[in-house]
């Protein structure tokens, strides 16, 4: 188990280094830059004209559908990886492959359904 954690300790270290780097940059930036806020500067930027409406506008529900698609497919793809490492091992072979094809078939059916339902076409 020590090995297991060791690898990620280093990764964590790098992440910490990255965070420090960003923090340092911000700190440096704060020291270096001027700060003269005016109302105009702090206004929302819409190509120079005064902003219209609210910042958090309603958006299309279509994005949700993409999100949904993604969540389903990407998460299902998770199953591929453990399988990928063992499917060709001794004693597995064709049957395992076929089973995974069945799984992929399920995914494809879902995709086909979404496609035929016009989900993938932007209106």
């Amino acid at each position: 188990m020590p090995d297991y954690f060791h690898g990620y300790t280093v990764v964590g270290l790098v992440a910490v280094v990255g965070v420090l780097f960003v923090a340092f940059a911000f700190l440096a930036g704060r020291l270096l830059r001027p700060s003269v806020p005016t109302p105009e500067k702090l206004m929302v930027y819409e190509c120079g004209v005064d902003p219209v409406g609210e910042g958090w506008a309603h958006t299309q529900v279509r994005y949700y559908i993409y999100a949904f698609l993604y969540v389903i497919f990407a998460v299902d793809a998770v199953f591929l990886f453990p399988w990928a490492t063992v499917f060709a091992a001794d004693g597995f072979g064709a049957a395992t492959l076929v089973e995974m094809f069945v799984f992929l078939g399920f995914l494809s059916v879902g995709l086909l359904y979404a496609w035929r339902k016009g989900v993938l076409t932007w209106t």
Binding site: A28, G29, R33, P34, S35, K41, L42, V44
Partner: peptide
């Protein structure tokens, strides 16, 4: 970039 003013919008 480091010398430029860094604004954060009001909202």
């Amino acid at each position: 970039f480091a010398q430029k003013e860094d604004t954060i919008p009001d909202g």
